[in-house]
Write a protein that binds this DNA or RNA. Structure first.
Lengths: 316, 316
DNA sequence: CTGTTAGCGCCTTCAG
DNA sequence: CTGAAGGCGCTAACAG
């Protein structure tokens, strides 16, 4: 019994011959170790809880894929849960993860509150925030510099001679992805003595953005739109075309996230690339370091971003 | 100890007062039952294994979301794994699921082989195939009638006066989704005395489809394209526009799957709707019935499909 | 290097 | 209606 455990986990030296006998028996009986029993005895389940707002959102699936790939590399599995970004559900899920004795949690949320942090501490489980900013930096996280990316985008557009640059996004509370992007946008617009223009929607979604841009375009002259994400950016392109204006001639459009959508738009969409897959992959790798007490250089990993220029903002 | 178990699982009558005392204690100690121990003792983990080729593929995330939503309703959780459609990996994953003592497996694969079936039987775990056809109907499954959908599409296009209808898809082995769709296409073309035209790609992916259609359009006159999925259909639209032809005037385009992409294309894409979310939801609901020995009317659930007409195939 | 012995935290009889 | 006792299948000391 114990010897079998030893060869299976390679946790101590076993004589070659005995090892062979064990392996043979295992094969003959087509024995499979019971991971649940193993988890109970060892206190480690080789399972990571993944809490995301919504897997079916444009980019999330890629991110999850990144997590899962790295997880497999390290012999972990993932339990996937959707929170819809609801605080109550998120807190509940963290509790459930605890019950399930996951070894760690990769957590994504539109906005982190102190209630989250409390729950994390209570649960005593290693956490990695992914694409979720903790302004106070209490929790390990993997992010990009969203505000900085907006700054870059405004720079980029202004250098191309655009001055009436609008920001298309929803209005959320503080600590949101979009709010960070908006913050960078506002800062750089002011920095360049340009007047910020806002096209606001209730939710970040194609149809709403389509309508918002359509009406806005007829009311106020603008020559560029920076959208909070690709889906809205594409809505902007279509809205502009619907209003018989031209992209990029009349209005340049820049998106955010570099989802597959960006290259499926006509004109192809200039977008700020976040490595979605890497997001997940890096977060999971980070997790494994935490779990194996590997040394880590920083608790706040910042992934690089980059403007991918396509036709939607090309020189006219 | 035993009484606590009884109140937690509501598995026997407990005096109201004792129940209250237990609940109070639980709250005071912020006690959480250990799901792993529970799983070991009860032989049920309340966990479902979900094996999919690739979550990050266009529609899969929606499907997974459907699974997860219904799973939560019934207090299950899901372990998500990507197989990349590789037989070896799929078999391996089924084994792992067994070790993890999942209560059931929802399985998706581009093509089911007898090796799969053997592994299922060996593992002795309830299985539900999802969007995966078992030609011999040995395993419970949730599908649409793919061949029938293609028949409908050809009908639809022919009634609109199109006669040179091409099928855009990759060449796979038998038992594939695309092969079913192709089968229906061929059958109905012949049935109507039309000559099947094939635009083949190696993989089912935007870039390849784009190139394939571009070159094909210049070589052979066609007036309609039925694509194996939306992504390829959008590639077709763009390829046609790139070649200075018009959609739908010169060539009508019909896609498959009704992913979000379809409404983000210009012209908007006519597509054969499969309820992706429902796919997952129904499969998971099916699973719960299996697990609770509820009566089930049929082992092969066939979901309805429907042609959603948009501009890409509108009357000219 | 290998067998023996305790648990891991819960569920499930079995008495009372 | 409630407590006591055994066991789920494995890991982790402990001897030998």
């Amino acid at each position: 019994m114990a010897t079998v455990s030893r060869v299976l986990n390679d946790t101590a030296v076993v004589k070659d011959e005995t090892k062979k006998r064990v392996l043979d028996a295992i094969a003959k009986l087509s024995y499979r170790p019971n991971a649940v029993a193993r988890g109970l005895a060892s206190k480690r389940t080789k399972t990571i809880g993944v809490i995301v707002p919504d897997v079916s959102a444009a980019f999330m699936a890629e991110l999850v894929r990144g997590i899962e790939d790295v997880a497999r590399m390290y012999h972990y599995h993932i339990i996937l849960c959707n929170s819809d970004g609801l605080l109550a559900r998120e807190v509940d899920l963290i509790g459930t993860m605890w019950e399930k004795q996951v070894d760690g949690i990769i957590f994504m949320s539109p906005a982190l509150t102190s209630e989250h942090v409390n729950t994390f501490e209570e649960a005593q489980i290693p956490i990695v925030l992914c694409r979720t900013d903790d302004p106070e930096g209490r929790i390990p996280s993997v992010n990009i510099d969203n505000a900085g990316a907006s700054v870059d985008a405004v720079n980029y557009l202004h250098k191309k001679g655009r001055t009436k640059i609008a920001f298309l996004g929803s209005i959320h509370h503080e600590g949101t992805l979009t709010s960070e992007r908006r913050r960078g946008y506002v800062a750089e617009m002011k920095n360049r003595n340009l007047t910020p223009i806002f096209i606001d929607t209730a939710r970040e979604e194609y149809q709403e953005a389509l309508l918002a841009v359509r009406t806005h375009v007829t009311m106020e002259p603008i020559d560029a739109i920076l959208a909070a994400n690709d889906e809205m950016a594409i809505a902007a392109i279509h809205a502009i075309l619907d209003e018989k204006k031209s992209v990029p001639k009349d209005i340049a459009v820049v998106g955010f996230d570099n989802t597959k959508l960006s290259m499926m738009a006509r004109p192809e969409l200039t977008t700020i690339a976040q490595p979605m897959y890497d997001y997940g992959a890096v977060a999971m790798r980070f997790m494994t370091k935490l779990l194996q007490d590997e040394p880590i250089s920083t608790f706040r990993v910042v992934l690089p971003h980059q403007i991918l220029e396509h036709a939607s903002s090309a020189d006219v």
